[in-house]
């Protein structure tokens, strides 16, 4: 895994975009692994009775995609100090979900604020933020 250093990071720099295409099978795997058995995530009848067109992707799974984006970018010597999670819209299985990020601010003390979000067809679904401590070359 490549390592990034605080000195190398510039405000506005983009994180490499990651693409996810969640399937109902993946939602069931997440349900089992997280023990979140809310039927809205795997039973279409229940989802439709709730007014949804299909089952929905778990919010924590969406956020974990974004956590993966950040941990892949920061390298093994980076550390996520804080993650701010917000969900604006539901993701559905079969969507091509782009996980994107941009360095928003260098906060000093080797710490950067990164805006991260999921996007489908140009619309932002889950705007998150991560505060990351990076190693220094010094």
């Amino acid at each position: 895994m490549a390592q990034i250093y605080y000195e190398d990071v510039e405000v506005g720099a983009e994180l490499p975009t990651m693409t996810k295409k969640p399937t109902t099978r993946q939602l069931v795997k997440w349900a089992g692994a997280s023990q979140d058995w809310n039927e809205l995530h795997y039973d279409k009848d229940v989802a439709q009775k709730g007014g949804l067109p299909n089952v929905i992707v778990q919010g924590h799974l969406t956020s974990s995609f974004l956590a993966q984006l950040v941990t892949d970018w920061m390298g093994e010597d980076g550390f996520v100090k804080k993650m701010e999670v917000k969900w604006k819209q539901f993701h559905f299985p079969g969507q091509e979900v782009l996980c994107k990020g941009k360095v928003a601010e260098k906060l000093g003390e080797n710490t950067v604020l990164v805006d991260i979000w999921t996007e489908v067809d140009g619309t932002i679904y889950a705007p998150h933020k991560a505060t990351v401590v990076l190693p220094s070359k010094g």
């Binding site: 974990s64 956590a67 093994e76």
Partner: peptide, 20 residues
């Protein structure tokens, strides 16, 4: 061999504990 000395969990796994 990493600085952690053992397997670590995906970042948000901790928040799944007790979430249901």
């Amino acid at each position: 061999k990493s600085k952690h000395g053992a397997n670590i969990a995906p970042l948000l796994m901790v928040t799944t504990l007790g979430a249901p």
